[in-house]
Amino acid sequence: MTSKQLLTVKGLQAKVDEKDILKGLDLDVKPGEVHAIMGPNGAGKSTFGYVLSGRDGYEITGGEVVLDGKDITEMDIEERARAGLFLAFQYPVEIPGVSNLEFLKAAVDAHREAQGLEPLSSKDFLKEAREASKKVNLPAEFLKRGVNEGFSGGEKKRNEIMQMLLLKPKLCILDESDSGLDIDALQVVAEGVNSMRDGERSFIVVTHYQRLLDYIKPDYVHVLSDGKIVKSGDASLALELEAQGYSWLAEMREADPEEMHREVSE
């Protein structure tokens, strides 16, 4: 048992467009762990990923975020990425005209530079890229196309996992990487994740469904609701949720006097 933390999130509060979304979120992730985050639509799961990655417009109003011993809240988006934080998006954006290959090479080289390594030769890079695309079952032609340009929903998700394979981050946050996937693609995503599990690398897996967790065994499952982790447990919690849904959350909220007070005063 190691006491070292990879990620420490304490009392994280954040707002978007003047709207408070995260309201005191706590989460500890140790190296090698897999945490699943579940919770109803609009709870703030994607927001949590955006805030960690430093997206513009997502303003931290309280709390702290420490990654690998460093406070990252003041870091630029790309600095955080190079520090080992990777976010696989729920809705990856299309960038026509910029080829996937060109983009990936720039990203890989930027990571290497941060680690004091020389850029990869085009040949070596191409080899790695081809291997990665094979692993996620994307034909090599996709490397030449514009970033996500005209990709189907599932292809976009696989492209995200491919990037994760190439960039070898310390902490991978997967935001509903399973939604919109057929069974085969789901396995591809899971295998991609599992192949990267090495006892050091950690994962935060945001999902609505138990089926992904059948493939990627989480060490912990958390329920995020209204900007806070309201319940944590082991893998069995996910099964419970699958069976019960989130209606119990409403009861919990009613019982919360502070919450009631807030609603009354509004």
Binding site: R82, P92, V93, I95, A107, H111, Q163
Partner: peptide, 15 residues
């Protein structure tokens, strides 16, 4: 496009 800019940066590419 701001979203595209964010995407590239989140992969470690400098602004």
């Amino acid at each position: 496009d701001n979203k595209a800019l964010y995407y590239l940066r989140s992969r470690g590419v400098s602004e």
